[in-house]
């Protein structure tokens, strides 16, 4: 059935919840693009046939006309599905820039296509240049602040004598510190610290 392969792409989007990416399905994409090519060939041959019979394409209402319309609409449908697939994935990829940061972890990287990785890089660059023009980091402060200081637990050895704000800390694994929230946020989003609730 025409358009079925393309709809599988959308089903894939639907299965993964909004924050989760599945691996880029390049096989199915290739299949759908090949299908488009096929529709186009059929469409052209039907149009040529109509023209060969000296019929006006706009007004002729025979089986070849409706065949051509079917191929045209199937092609459109395939295109919409492909674009929706790419576009929605791109939306998730953009949101990762805000949530995770400029460097994506390996397990996410491997789910992206080459072009998607490039998109992430380019879009990241757009956000970064925008923030540097503003001279304000917009990726911190994602939730309204309750207290200027928070307790954090260090999840991985980050370093000795690191200065956070006005003080320096020795951030060794499993140590607990009371630090300024804004200073800790970057480490939290990288998964190197977590907020500690005693």
């Amino acid at each position: 059935m025409y358009g079925r392969t393309a709809s599988q792409l959308l089903r894939e989007l639907d299965i993964a919840d909004s924050d989760n990416l599945q691996a880029f399905n390049s096989d199915t994409c290739d299949q759908v693009i090949a299908e488009c090519e096929n529709h186009h060939l059929m469409l052209q041959s039907l149009i040529r046939k109509l023209e060969g019979e000296q019929l006006d394409i706009q007004t002729a209402r025979n089986e070849d006309h409706f065949g051509a319309v079917t191929h045209h609409l199937s092609l459109l449908r395939n295109k919409r599905c492909l674009m929706a697939y790419m576009y929605n994935r791109a939306e998730v990829i953009r949101s990762l820039r805000w949530k995770v940061g400029a460097k994506l972890p390996e397990e996410i990287q491997e789910k992206l296509s080459f072009s998607e990785k490039e998109y992430f890089k380019n879009h990241s660059a757009a956000i970064e240049s925008s923030m540097s023009e503003l001279d304000l980091d917009l990726t911190v402060d994602m939730v309204p602040p309750k207290d200027p200081y928070i307790q954090v637990r260090v999840l991985d050895d980050i370093g000795d004598n690191l200065s956070l704000g006005d003080h320096s800390f020795s951030l060794t694994k499993n140590s607990v510190h009371s630090v300024r929230r804004t200073d800790a946020e970057q480490y939290i989003s990288q998964g190197l610290m977590e907020e500690f609730f005693a």
């Binding site: 994409c29 693009i33 488009c36 490039e118």
Partner: peptide, 22 residues
């Protein structure tokens, strides 16, 4: 810059591979 990045991405992964007119 957003539009440029998005156009480039969609162009190279889908649009340039579709038939002329689409």
């Amino acid at each position: 810059r957003c539009v440029n990045a998005m156009e480039k991405h969609l162009e190279q992964s889908v649009l340039s591979r579709l038939p002329y007119g689409y």
